[in-house]
Design a protein around this nucleic acid. Structure first.
Lengths: 137, 137
DNA sequence: TAATCTTTGCAATACGGTTGCACGAGGTAA
DNA sequence: TTACCTCGTGCAACCGTATTGCAAAGATTA
């Protein structure tokens, strides 16, 4: 069952699976695109903005979602792969931001190439967003 | 002369080389790291926030600077190469954001690899920021 | 049940980004 | 020179996202 999977997922990341968190997590997995706080606000209109904000923050701190910085001005959150560590250069993939529909998509299978950084730069995270127009627009 | 070069640069991009713009452009070329609006505000403390904002915007619209979206929450602006077109996959390079000193560096010579996007995605711009710790921190 | 910890909701605030409007400098035509 | 006109700059106000403090509600444990 979907709910059950979501519950396990949160527990494996040491997050109390409250009703709110499960609903947010399920919403994240249903959506094809990454979500912003505003998206959540709109979808869960009877819940409070702060709660949703902190839910995302908790998810991010525990590696359930990763943050994406695109041109939209608001941070997007994408669901991580099952056993993602959210670290560069492993577990990092490319994203696409469509300027028309303003959706940001995760390409989980397009991993970020390992750039040859100058010496002494110690990478930990990567944000790769290609901007343009998606097939639907 | 430096000023002269800056002047030519603006003119070649069809921007009136006002005193303010020249000063901002020179500041951009002096700095090793990309700048935010707040940086400019601090450096040109007797100039108005709006003027600096519009200066950056003008520069960006005319291909003098490119925008970088990192974890800092504020957009950074990096000086473009001489005849940059600011388009993906050409003329796009990697950046490094240091979480300690909060500087964002351009790696002009580390161009973004051409990712094999799924069909029908039409790319136009790319934002690639690796986060971590820089040599000085 | 009482004590405690966590989650949620409400209110207020900080801050980056953005716009409208007015002033002023510089250039152009009568 | 005067009368425009354009464009850059400055001031003030505003919007939206992100964030924090505090109190109420809910869950957990002794």
């Amino acid at each position: 069952m979907e709910t059950d999977t979501a519950e396990q997922r949160l527990e494996s990341r040491r997050i109390q699976p409250t009703a709110m968190r499960l609903r947010v997590l399920n919403y994240l997995s249903e959506r094809k695109a990454a979500v912003s706080l505003a998206d959540l606000e709109q979808h869960f209109s009877n819940s409070d903005r702060t709660t949703l904000y902190r839910t995302l923050k908790t998810f991010q701190e525990h590696g359930v979602v990763h943050q994406i910085y695109d041109e939209s001005g608001s941070t997007k959150y994408g669901l991580c792969a099952e056993n993602c560590t959210c670290s560069y250069p492993d577990d990092m993939h490319a994203h696409f931001y469509c300027t028309s529909c303003e959706n940001t998509f995760c390409f989980q299978n397009l991993s970020i190439p390992n750039i040859n950084l100058p010496d002494a730069f110690q990478p930990s995270y990567g944000n790769f967003v290609i901007t343009g127009r998606c097939p639907d627009c």
